Amino acid sequence: MTMPYDAQDDLSDEALLARYASGDAAAARILTLRLTPRVFGHAMRLLGNHAEAEDVTQDALIRLWRIAPDWREGEAKVTTWLYRVVANLCTDRLRRRPSVDLDAVPEVEDGAVGAAEGMQQQARADALQAALMQLPDRQREAVVLRHIEGLGNPEIAAIMEISPRAVESLTARGKRALTEILAGRKDELGYTDD
């Protein structure tokens, strides 16, 4: 039986996945709308490429729909499983990329005209993304999950299949590396405090 949308909005991801596996198309729509922005954002931060992030998002969600009938509630959260799948798909794509000199890549022009604050925020976001892309893959993944996605160390450990202590180590090293990479750009990026 299909429930109305508003009744399904309160259901957990796992419950919606179980409903989808039972043939409830509305549950799939709600779960897709709920998860797609998070999955895409995570892929975008790991890859730094919009088109590739869209492809990874689609692949990850298709994999979720395929495993739905076999999903065992209580073993893992849907989001934990998806973050792990996205990370693996991104890692595969990054390994297949040819090495490119970052200085040789032209700057992408933004055609939008905005206020100074908007430009400053975009410069900061671009600087952070460029700095993230200089980190080793595992450090970047840990830093993104912890400080951008806002996940806790136990969930990150489950996603990355490492211990929470290893997560702490990766995020600490990643933060130190980001600090070093961005240290000389404080004035340019408009940071006046320490």
Rank of each mutant, 00 (worst) to 15 (best):
T36P: 03
V105A: 12
R95P: 09
L94N: 08
S22H: 10
G190F: 02
E168T: 15
Y5V: 14
R185M: 13
E52N: 09
R45E: 09
V39R: 01
E107H: 09
G41K: 07
G174A: 02
D194S: 13
T2I: 13
E52A: 14
A166H: 13
A166S: 13
L178Q: 01
L170S: 05
A21R: 00
T79Q: 11
R140F: 04
Y20W: 09
E52M: 11
A166V: 09
L61T: 00
A157L: 06
T2Y: 07
R146C: 08
L35A: 01
P37D: 03
R185Q: 13
T171W: 00
L178R: 00
L132G: 02
E117K: 14
E109C: 07
D59S: 07
V143T: 01
W65L: 01
A43S: 04
D9V: 12
W65I: 03
D10I: 10
N88C: 10
E168V: 06
H147L: 11
L16C: 00
G150Q: 05
A166C: 09
A142T: 05
A7M: 12
S12L: 07
I181C: 03
V85Q: 15
P154S: 04
A43K: 01
A116M: 08
E107R: 09
E155L: 14
W81M: 01
R19Q: 10
A125T: 09
R93M: 14
A27Y: 02
I156T: 00
G48L: 06
E141M: 07
A43G: 10
L33D: 14
V86W: 10
A183Q: 07
N153T: 12
K175F: 11
R38S: 14
A166W: 06
W71K: 01
A15P: 06
G74T: 01
G118T: 09
G152F: 06
T2M: 15
E141Y: 00
D187G: 10
L89D: 03
A104E: 15
A157Y: 13
Q139I: 04
D110E: 12
M160P: 04
R19H: 13
L61Q: 00
I30H: 02
K175C: 12
D187P: 03
T80K: 03
V78Q: 00
I162M: 10
A43M: 02
P98L: 11
D126C: 05
L31G: 00
T57M: 12
E168S: 15
P164E: 05
E155A: 08
A53Q: 06
E188C: 04
D59C: 05
G150L: 02
V56G: 02
I181L: 10
V167E: 01
L35C: 01
V100W: 14
N49K: 13
L17I: 08
A25Y: 06
L182C: 07
Q134G: 04
E141R: 05
V100G: 11
D6M: 12
D55K: 04
A172H: 09
P106G: 02
G48T: 03
M1H: 12
R97G: 04
A127H: 06
R19A: 13
